[in-house]
């Protein structure tokens, strides 16, 4: 048991060390959220008056938790997916011949990816004063908790996909056909309660929409923006995580 815990810790520590050494990646991770928030967000907010819908003043606030969610989504998903090429060509191959169970490798990778996603998300929170969103100590820890849960959910999804799809080309396909739709249909950029019916249905089966919902609750606590009660968000995210991580360690542990 102790051996397995050391294994989990080793895999986690390696991801964290790599992350902090990769300065360009940390800096680049600011670019996309800034673009979305301050270019796209500001643009859309100011277009509200053109189309006759009020000032759009709250829109940036509405969007902010969505952008934090986006950062968590992409970071945790890609770091979990890295298990694919790492397994074929990299460090992970080495780990696979060590006497550490496959489950520990998966858990270590999940925790590593989620920790990094949490750090990235927390960095985005630094923009909150610009939007006049008050983030107190308590709120901060609530958000951290939710970010971690969302990151775990997405990372487990990444591991399951990574274990099934083993080619590099499939990454692009997954990004375009799964990740982007997941993001657009999560309520991150626009409220889902007033959209067309099919969107609503898709949003309901999209685990990320529960994550964004919880994030929005923790940050803004505005009932008008809430889709589901918080407990439901947490139950859905936690169940998806549990199911997917069991499936993920099973699939990853399979031998060819």
């Amino acid at each position: 048991m102790k051996k397995e815990l050391i294994g989990v810790y080793t895999i986690w520590l390696r991801d964290i060390k790599r992350y902090f050494r990769d300065r360009p990646r940390i800096i680049a991770s600011f670019a996309q959220p800034i673009l979305f928030l301050f270019v796209l967000g500001t643009g859309i907010a100011s277009s509200f008056s053109t189309f006759g819908g009020g000032s759009g003043g709250d829109f940036l606030n509405f969007m902010f938790p969505g952008i934090v969610g986006m950062t968590v989504l992409f970071t945790s998903f890609f770091s979990a997916m890295s298990i694919v090429w790492d397994r074929e060509f990299g460090f992970l191959r080495e780990v696979l011949v060590t006497p550490i169970s496959r489950t520990s490798i998966v858990v270590g990778k999940l925790l590593g990816g989620s920790t990094i996603a949490m750090i990235q998300g927390a960095i985005i929170l630094l923009f909150s004063p610009l939007l006049k969103i008050p983030i107190t100590f308590v709120i901060f820890f609530k958000i951290i908790g939710i970010m971690f849960l969302v990151a775990m959910t997405i990372a487990t999804l990444g591991i399951v996909l990574a274990s099934v799809i083993k080619s590099m080309q499939a990454f692009q396909v997954i990004t375009n056909f799964l990740l982007m739709p997941m993001f657009f249909l999560s309520g991150a950029l626009f409220p889902l309660n007033n959209t067309v019916k099919w969107m609503n249905v898709v949003a309901k089966i999209n685990p990320l929409s529960y994550g964004i919902d919880a994030m929005r609750f923790a940050m803004l606590n505005n009932p008008a923006f809430q889709l589901y009660p918080l407990w439901l968000d947490i139950v859905v995210l936690a169940s998806v995580t549990v199911v997917m991580s069991i499936l993920g360690s099973f699939l990853f542990g399979r031998q060819d």
Binding site: R14, K17, R18, D22, F89, F91, R93, E94
Partner: peptide, 9 residues
């Protein structure tokens, strides 16, 4: 056959 070191370490 393929390098399996972590080159950022």
């Amino acid at each position: 056959q393929d390098p399996s070191l972590d080159d950022r370490l």
